[in-house]
Amino acid sequence: MEQLVAPTSKMGVDVRHTGEAGTTEIKVSAQNVDVFYGEKHAIKGVSVNVPARSVMAFIGPSGCGKSTFLRCINRMNDTIEGCKVTGNIRLDDRDIYDANLDVVELRARVGMVFQKPNPFPKSIFENVAYGPRIHGLVHGKADLDAIVEQSLRKAALWEEVKDRLKEPGTGLSGGQQQRLCIARAIAVNPEVILMDEPCSALDPIATARVEELIDELRQNYTIIIVTHSMQQAARVSQQTAFFHLGILVETGSTEFIFTNPHDQRTQDYITGRFG
């Protein structure tokens, strides 16, 4: 159980918030984040607040930095050589770039689902059990079985795979693989789940299933999803942030952004002038 103080942080200063800011607690809050890849300035002064237990979508044209920014939130950018992140990102009220912070703990609390399904070349069971095992969250086989089943159920995959848990995860269909990866992420009981275009490699039916799943997961988790598809953003998210050329142009409730954006660039993108 995590006892947390509801952050009282201010809204981003250089970003206009449109629509109602909401009454909820802020789960992730970024202030003036810059990211450099060697000489390249990939993210420029981004500040954003992500409300707890909701879905926030990051949209924008390709190369706008939305994935890069997403990867800052669980410090996956650390694994890229020559990548430097400045600014302040807080999970609840804890600075995640604090030298004392444990990356392993952070990544357990902030799970991630990738663009392409990437199940490990192990059995379905082992894929889901991997996280709880390494983090020492379970004691005994029964416990583990329970977590695996629970996670697969939450990922809406249980019914399809319960008879073949020993088969390799790579043998599943693309959509099932992606739901397996979601199950793998929720097996360690994260607070935030980052999804980097989770449906871009899936067919429409599989996409619909994953979107449904995201909507259900919103009850318990804070979800940040990067997506190319505005329809998807409109369908699954409550909040939307629009990125362009490394800058966060506009953020606010999804409804508001899609119907009444303040910024000309947002409007152009939404209406399909560029993309």
């Binding site: 947390l4 609840d92 009981n189 607070e191 988790y221």
Partner: peptide
């Protein structure tokens, strides 16, 4: 002061065992 962590069974990351 509220308990805002969503999943009811969330692991306690700051426990001694952890």
């Amino acid at each position: 002061m509220t308990v805002i962590d969503a999943p009811a069974t969330g692991p306690d990351w700051s426990s001694a065992a952890s």
